[in-house]
Design a protein around this nucleic acid. Structure first.
Lengths: 343, 343
DNA sequence: CTGAAAGCGCTTACAG
DNA sequence: CTGAAAGCGCTTACAG
């Protein structure tokens, strides 16, 4: 029953458009139309063709289609890490826009490395994607230039304001978000305010910067209470950085954790130390992951419109691919501070 | 500076192998060899070709390559959900094997739906992947047959023992894992043992089944304490199902949560109810995610060799693609119960 | 070590 | 509404 399909042989066994056409007694192009532009083929023929496709088990060859049509119907999507819950929401937004329009996505992870990002883009270029959706504005100059030269439209997601985008851009201002969290702490009356951060990608650094600048303005005599660690964000690391901050600044009364993961670790560490949150120490996070509403105490955090960012990025891209103008090449979708028990 | 690259036009602007060849004064095939089989081309030529590639910004066209060589160098990978931490580890394992051998992955999510799985496989078939790596043995008969007819090698990941694989298979026995958890509870002296489950994919059902069958053998007069909910697993749902179980069976003294996510929710709910874990109620999870070691109390769970499953799946596949035999088409990689504070 | 010819499976652009 | 011709950019298989 098995049809060959081994690689290496030329065209061995596989059913082609021609096979289907011959079986129906029409030309290949007519079968192609029946499959791709059904309204350009008469009903009767369409049915016979459908039948033949089913009987033969014909599978269209995307590579051939892409080569002949000079359009891959593919969007290259580049994110730091799919295992990061933040990006799975973004991806969902892109996916939901692409799928109905028959665009496919190829997704790659940079693991927060500009070098890996560069390799990935180089690799994805060979797929001749119709568009690139990438993460962040902090791309290496070489990569940026490579993308510009390709002539392929680019949407950069997640952050706005730190730099001119290559082409289009949708996200939020992490600087403003960090600042807003500091203002919130100050409004709540906290005095000795610290921040812990990991990963230290540009967006995280911007949150720290916005946060610190506001804290400094408010309490110019206080030292900067900051622990920054380049390692990937994790619950475990959150506990460690929290401990480090308290070791250096034991009188800290509020801590902004630049990711919810870190905040969970900080909360667990407080539990082990029998520190009362927020009475003895306030904790806030960033991203507002699902768990933040469930943990004890529930976590004050900043929610980002992740799904909308993905959706908008895809919409901007598909709009462009339809040949329409881009009235707003930079879109700031804003964020929302979610007040809960922890701060 | 922008080169055209718009779709719709035929071959507009893009640099091809021929362009590079002409510039160097050799034939296209020589350039192709310089790029793909460097040791078949003389040093001198190779350097001049590299130079020309750089100067022109030539990007090879994968579609053309795939069409001409009848090998896509692509593995189709089908998992329930990338946003599930469980699968990001598996993906990493596959990735680390594929990349050095220049295989690319296309990854698709079924969201635990057999219907979506079927659509996905249909879609991926058009990429002419050299292999399929799918999740679970519970595929619909139609899809299974479609895959068999394609003649493409298939590795099914994650579970073993519930059914003959289509081709190859690597995973663990979820039945045995559930059973082991029950034995552990019994050994620890718990008497009124319950289980909560969500998602209810085949692997989860098998864990429940293995767990329950062992509990029944040990306490034949007790009722089945089970709450099963088809919704996706989440921390929030864990709290809800935990509450439901306690409402139905208030004297339960130990609960197996079929995912760590559910267990976190159960732990948070215990904290809110001021129930002491494990003294008043024991909690155990499944998968041993990163957070399970950090939460309070730390979570007893079952660890699966996720990375190894992915790695092995890819190795079995690439082995087959090299034309080598498959001595062990079904591989059980085993699991490990991690004892911590919660049970 | 290098090349001329043919072909992979499809779609475009032009006719009719 | 349907088709004959040409071509997308690459690699295979055969020579030399």
């Amino acid at each position: 029953m098995k049809s060959a399909g081994k690689s290496g042989h030329r065209g061995k066994g596989r059913i082609t458009l021609d096979d289907v056409a011959r079986r129906v007694g029409v030309s290949a192009i007519t079968v192609s139309r029946a499959l791709n532009n059904p309204d350009k083929v008469s009903e009767a023929l369409k049915e016979r063709i459908q039948q033949a496709v089913l009987e033969t088990g014909y599978v269209p060859n995307r590579a051939a289609r892409s080569l002949a049509s000079n359009a891959s119907k593919t969007l290259a999507v580049i994110i730091p890490s799919v295992s990061n819950a933040v990006f799975s929401n973004v991806i969902k937004g892109i996916y939901d826009v692409c799928t109905p329009l028959n665009y496919e996505m190829i997704i790659g992870n940079t693991y927060y490395s500009l070098k890996q990002e560069s390799n990935l883009i180089e690799k994805f270029l060979t797929h001749m994607p119709d568009g690139f959706i990438t993460t962040g504005l902090d791309m290496s100059d070489d990569t940026r230039q490579r993308l510009e030269q390709s002539g392929i439209p680019v949407v950069q997601m997640m952050e706005t304001g730190t730099r001119e985008p290559i082409d289009m851009c949708v996200g939020i201002s992490h600087l403003a978000a960090g600042r807003e969290m500091a203002e919130y702490f100050i409004r709540k009356g906290y005095q000795r305010i610290g921040v812990i951060a990991s990963q230290l990608d540009q967006r995280t650094r911007n949150r720290v910067q916005g946060f610190l600048s506001c804290v400094r303005e408010h309490a110019p005599t206080q030292p900067d209470r900051v622990i920054a660690d380049p390692r990937p964000s994790s619950v475990h690391l959150g506990g460690a950085l929290f401990s480090e901050l308290l070791a250096q600044f034991p009188d800290t009364d509020a801590i902004f954790c630049c990711n919810d993961d870190l905040a969970y670790g900080a909360i667990y560490e407080c539990q082990r130390r029998h520190l009362r949150i927020p009475q003895q120490i306030a904790i806030a996070g960033f991203n507002d992951l699902e768990q933040s509403a469930c943990i004890n105490p529930s976590l004050t955090s900043i929610a980002i419109p992740l799904y909308s960012i993905g959706k908008t990025a895809a919409e901007m891209m598909l709009n462009r691919l339809k040949g329409q103008p881009t009235p707003t090449p930079v879109m700031d979708l804003g964020f929302r501070l979610i007040e809960r028990e922890s701060a």
